[in-house]
Design a protein around this nucleic acid. Structure first.
Lengths: 217, 217
DNA sequence: GTCATTCAGGTGACAACGTCATCTGAAAAC
DNA sequence: GTTTTCAGATGACGTTGTCACCTGAATGAC
């Protein structure tokens, strides 16, 4: 086994371990279960160690969300550049990719669509009064970049179906609808005796409606 | 001022005060800000008092959500029975009522669509081993009833526009869409340079699409 | 009217958590 | 070789949810 020497490599490795542990705990029990102590323990360290890599717990979760967005963006990109798929198939695939996250990793999904700027009361500058590195702003900026990348990818998929003119409006419509479907399925508000339908049916209907408009208009 | 005598009246009054305090704190700073100590203080009591009226913090929040659903249900009912409104106006009104909650009371809105059965690790039976009253199950059952009432009201509004046959499917479609629009507006994911549209525009588009289908079909 | 019971509320305590200041040892820079 | 940097450990503090225990007043039985 290669002995780890350089400090940069070690830091990158521990940061990765911290992110993995946080993501795993998030999947298991939501943000409440992401305890800095448990994260540190799973990464083979003690409680205060994460503070060397993340400003606070919120920054850690934000970094997890950033990687989640990156992963979805990659999925959408793969769909968009798959020559074996039609435009509508690519769109359906992108929407189902999003909903799939809601099903498989509901806590991560909620984290992805968390309210921005919800950073709870910061208690002033601390940690030897020096920690200018890994400031909270950096993590949020990276998260915003990641979501923008997803939005661009998704917009391109929509534009291929309804044209560049209507892409923005109908892209927002499709994304918000899929988000609402995923959210209500996730929260259990969709599986009621009242609505006797499924998330997949709803997605199909929305896509069909938008596709019809895209053709006629 | 009338002196409070009977114990039942006193209990009902303090329960009301607790709910009001919790709702106010929720609006101010989200569920994290709803501290049992602060709730008790605002209700003129000490920290442990709420446990005589609610099983735990989660039950208190669930009760707040129940009242939120009740209020929205009343709004929709008022719209539904307003003779001065057309069917589509009633639908738009109901959707905007929901989105209005997302704008005015975002934390309450998120609480309304919170995942069911997310009750975090209950630590066993406590409080003198007697507290069979105000069990957590009661609050959740009441919350479910409240959401069902909303669903029924909303379904009736939709049925008046697209007919009873398609009401369930398109009702779910409209509700999920509105929920997604509200959620993404609330989280800030809608106000991006990518989607140059607004929540109101999206709602109008969705309603128009569904109305068209309702007419043609 | 008397007395036992119920029960809303107060109080002390505990564990868990986020976070900070401080310390330490090794890598890195010079 | 010396100094600086910095990842990580450790002790500590304040806050929070929750519990067991206690108290006093309203309630119901007789």
């Amino acid at each position: 086994m290669g002995v780890m020497v350089t400090r940069a490599e070690s830091a990158a490795l521990t940061r990765r371990a911290l992110l993995d542990a946080a993501a795993e705990l998030l999947d298991l029990g939501g943000p409440e279960a992401v305890t800095l102590r448990e994260v540190g323990a799973r990464a083979g360290m003690t409680r205060g160690a994460p503070y060397r890599h993340f400003a606070d717990k919120d920054s850690l979760l934000t970094a997890v969300a950033t990687e989640g967005w990156d992963r979805i963006s990659d999925q959408v990109r793969a769909l968009r550049t798959d020559p074996a798929l039609s435009a509508s198939e690519r769109l359906c695939g992108a929407l189902h990719a999003l909903i799939g996250v809601g099903r498989g990793q509901p806590h991560l999904y909620q984290l992805l669509f968390r309210r921005r700027g919800d950073r709870p009361g910061q208690r002033g500058e601390g940690l030897d009064r020096v920690r200018r590195l890994c400031a909270p702003a950096d993590d949020t900026a990276a998260a915003v970049r990641a979501t923008e990348r997803f939005q661009d990818e998704f917009l391109a998929v929509v534009a291929a179906l309804v044209g560049a003119q209507n892409a923005r409006h109908y892209g927002a419509l499709l994304l918000t609808s899929a988000h609402g479907i995923a959210g209500m399925e996730l929260s259990g508000h969709l599986a009621t005796d009242v609505w006797r339908t499924s998330a997949d049916e709803l997605v199909d209907t929305v896509v069909r409606m938008v596709a019809n408009v895209g053709e006629t208009a």
